[in-house]
Computed example of a mutant assay.
Amino acid sequence: MPAQDHRYSDAEIEALWRALRERRDMRHFLPVAEAKPLPEGLIERLVLAAHLAPSVGYMQPWRFIRVTDPALRSAMQAQVESERQRTAAALPTRNDEFLKVKIEGMHDCAELLVVTLMHGREQHIVGRRTLPEMDIASVGCAIQNMWLVARAEGVGLGWVSFFEPQALGDLLGLPEGAYPLGILCIGHVPAFYPRPMFEDAGWGKRLDMAQVLFENRWPEGALPTPAAY
């Protein structure tokens, strides 16, 4: 029998590469009062995309909380702002510069989702016995799926990680063992950034392939990427 050709068409492959190239961590959103409604069923499609992600041991560790209470959103934003200030204070040399960088769009975005790890994760040991953090990697894959679908549909998504996990977990009533990993801001944007926003703000640039792809062994003399502060 002839070998099966499992390759996508050129147009389909290019569409995938376009989404990869143009995906951005968005922080600037059109206020809901000024923006058209989000596409019907978008949130459900984003969560479905996340749920199609690979997960270690097929444990599917992701859980999502859709935040619709304005008071809860405000309380979450206050926690994020508090952590933003603590992060700035911890930077050795660029604290004032960091404070000028917008790190979230929680006030303007149309939808807010919190992504958490499930509770009871310790019972899942396949693929995690020596690398228990693989559940976090699995959730990262899920969020990447959401990012790509959102970009394909012309909607911005921003991943906010400036919070103290226990405080946010308490605010959301998470059960013991559940762990928040991100606040996702979702909404229409004025424009997608031409480059990652932190790159344009002077906090680094995308590394060359030679800095990330090695053969057989770690190259002698390879230096760590310097911190951007």
Rank of each mutant, 00 (worst) to 15 (best):
L112S: 00
V149M: 08
D108K: 08
G140Y: 04
M59A: 10
E40G: 15
G41E: 04
K205C: 06
G127N: 08
L30Q: 08
R129D: 13
V114A: 10
L99S: 08
R45V: 00
L131W: 15
R151V: 00
A33I: 01
G187V: 04
A19L: 03
A11K: 10
R21I: 01
G202H: 04
K102C: 05
V139I: 13
R18I: 05
T93D: 11
G204R: 11
I136E: 14
L172I: 12
P196E: 14
P54K: 04
Q144R: 03
L168F: 06
S138T: 01
R66Y: 02
A53F: 07
A152L: 10
E122G: 15
Q79F: 01
A3R: 12
M146C: 03
V56G: 02
H28G: 04
A88G: 10
P190L: 12
F163R: 02
I65Y: 12
L184A: 01
Q60N: 10
P196H: 12
S161F: 01
W17D: 05
G156P: 02
W147E: 09
V160D: 03
V56K: 07
L30Y: 05
G221R: 00
P31V: 05
P39Y: 03
A152I: 05
W159P: 01
E215C: 05
Q4N: 14
S9E: 13
W218C: 05
F163T: 02
M209N: 11
C109V: 02
H107W: 08
L30P: 07
K36Y: 07
K36E: 15
V32K: 10
A178F: 07
H188S: 12
L168N: 07
T225Y: 01
Q166F: 13
A15C: 07
W218G: 00
G120I: 01
P224R: 00
F192T: 04
V189K: 06
Q166Y: 11
P31D: 06
Y179G: 09
G204D: 05
E81W: 04
R217I: 10
G156A: 02
A71D: 15
E164I: 08
F192W: 09
T130S: 09
A167Y: 05
G127V: 03
A178S: 15
R18S: 11
V155G: 05
G177I: 00
L42M: 01
E111D: 11
A75M: 06
P2Q: 06
I43P: 09
R73S: 11
T130R: 15
E122K: 14
V139E: 04
A33Y: 00
A191K: 15
